[in-house]
Amino acid sequence: MTDLIDRDTFNHLVDLAAFELNEEQAQYLLREMNNQLKAIHELAVIPLEGDLPITSHGVPYTEAISAPPRADEWIPFEHPEAILAQAPETQDGYFTVPDIPHQTLE
């Protein structure tokens, strides 16, 4: 596990993340990602038993400490206008956005 992230892979990630970067930012980010990857490679030396389970959160959620499923009830928010007021642009109670690009799949 000594692979480094190359510039093409990096550019692909930048596109997926919907960022635009100048060259200085791109160089900094790629360098730091590869430095972090080097730290992550420390994990490669740990022998893991074949059936070692993953832990997705530390504290086990037993039935005794978990809330029972709640009723599927619709509870309206008291001030929906306060939510809409935070949006950069709205019209008639809808969020508005620039044109959505369309693409025809072949």
Binding site: A17, F19, M33, P98
Partner: peptide, 29 residues
């Protein structure tokens, strides 16, 4: 902006500092 995608890109490029960008890219990788 021309379209929604360009709005996303410019908004996120201007809105996030370098450390959030770094975490997002690393997490995706």
């Amino acid at each position: 902006v021309q379209d929604l995608r360009e709005m996303y890109r410019k908004t996120r490029a201007e809105g996030f500092g370098l450390q959030p960008k770094l975490r997002i890219l690393m997490g995706m990788y």
